[in-house]
Design a protein around this nucleic acid. Structure first.
Length: 190
DNA sequence: GCCAACGTTGGC
DNA sequence: GCCAACGTTGGC
């Protein structure tokens, strides 16, 4: 008896990117109880540095302005309160992971997308059906020393890091072993 | 400053 | 639905 192959053609939501498929599905999947996940966000230090975050009240900021669906899904579906997040300085010398943050508030609508005067304005994102989301990040501590991109690239255990493989994304997942490798590196002299 | 790698947009 | 044109990111 032939197996009836009924491919249900579920229409993808307009904001798409099915979270149940693709190479990064695991970091969006439901968690074991108490499981903690790890992430990396990029920022140009001239625009917003880790020190600038440390100087803010509560050392906390809204991580707004993300306008890429994959990155959005990492924030909206993947990030949970208490997750740890590497803070990476991009487009600077040297490019490096500088410090650690934590997710202080889970995803909520990115209000900058509703603001006509804001450069992140997106007319397709409506307050009653938002396209874009942000989280709150709170600085936890600087790394003992920055871990540079060159060093990350030179470390075999980090060869599969999402930040290398999907390099231009501003939000990427970090595996627990990658997290440990990087924090250990930062405790050793360069 | 250049350019590779993507993502998005729009004509057909 | 394809693909060329264009914009953005970010390493170098």
């Amino acid at each position: 008896m032939p197996v009836k192959k009924k491919q249900s053609k579920a229409k993808p939501a307009k904001t798409s990117t099915p979270s149940s498929e693709g190479p990064w599905a695991a970091v969006l999947a439901p968690r074991e109880t108490g499981e903690k996940r790890y992430w990396l966000v990029k920022s140009e230090p001239e625009t917003f540095s880790y020190d600038a975050l440390l100087a803010l009240p509560g050392k906390t900021t809204q991580w707004d302005g993300v306008r890429n669906f994959v990155a959005r899904n990492f924030m909206r579906i993947g990030m949970q309160k208490g997750d740890r997040v590497f803070f990476y300085h991009s487009s600077t010398n040297p490019q490096a992971i500088i410090g650690i943050c934590e997710v202080a508030k889970e995803a909520y609508p990115d209000s900058t997308a509703f603001d006509k005067k804001h450069h992140g304005y997106d007319p397709k994102s409506k307050p009653d059906d938002p396209t874009w989301f942000m989280v709150d990040l709170r600085a936890v501590e600087k790394l003992p020393r920055p871990v540079t991109l060159a060093e990350i690239k030179a470390t075999p255990a980090l060869a599969n890091m999402a930040m290398l493989r999907i390099g231009r994304l501003s939000v990427t997942p970090v595996s627990p072993s990658e997290w440990d490798t990087i924090t250990e590196l930062s405790r050793k002299p360069a």
